[in-house]
Design a protein around this nucleic acid. Structure first.
Lengths: 107, 107
DNA sequence: TTCATATTTCGTAATTACGCGAAATAAAGG
DNA sequence: CCTTTATTTCGCGTAATTACGAAATATGAA
């Protein structure tokens, strides 16, 4: 993870509708959810939905796979982990004891 | 954590300079870093720095404490944890086995 | 108080993001 | 091929964000 990619990811999540989409995909699980179903559940116009899904995909936060007529979207947990690791990189000047308990041990 | 607060936090991080400031504070540790030193290290004008620090503080990502003449800024690790928990809430429809290993166990 | 240091507020101009209607494109079934 | 379903692209008007100079404010030292 690098700074520009992290900014793309945070920008993607910094939006009411996109954040709702991502959290919905998280709750639906790694098998993926059809775009149309996302739009139906969140009451989004097709063009608006398409733009937001494209933004999330470009940011690496979701993956897309065509299944017959529909496109299934699934969240990327690796992306979330990468973001957190990037945020907390070299935490506390290497003094792990300073932030033990509040930071995952593998950062 | 709720949706509007999460959006404020992600918006705050979705900016080149603010992300650099936050990561610098993380690396400096919980004792805090004077605003002026942040500005010196990242080469920021006072008004620009002030605005960005205020944004990060409003988003709950950093804390500020006056120490003599300076204001010490420190990162909030709790805020990061809260964001991640919010993002991954009710992951995979409650089927923890679906995302074991990629998601912290306490989400 | 007087001065120097540290930080915030305000105004402005340039840039970018936003939703969504309409039209175009893609894929699969009949 | 033709139709239906699913998704994307384009264009427009609107709204929010940005950096930063200049001035104001706050704090502590002399």
């Amino acid at each position: 993870m690098n700074q520009p990619d992290a900014i793309d990811a945070f920008s993607a999540l910094a939006h009411d509708t996109r954040l709702a989409i991502f959290r919905l995909l998280v709750q639906r699980g790694p098998a993926g959810t059809p775009a149309m179903e996302v739009g139906r559940l969140l009451d989004l116009k097709p063009s608006t939905l398409s733009g937001h899904l494209a933004t999330l995909k470009r940011a690496g936060l979701v993956t897309a796979e065509r299944q017959h007529r529909e496109i299934l979207y699934a969240p990327s947990f690796d992306a979330v982990n990468g973001l957190v690791r990037f945020l907390l990189q070299d935490c506390c000047g290497g003094d792990k004891s300073a932030c033990a308990g509040v930071v995952p041990p593998d950062v």
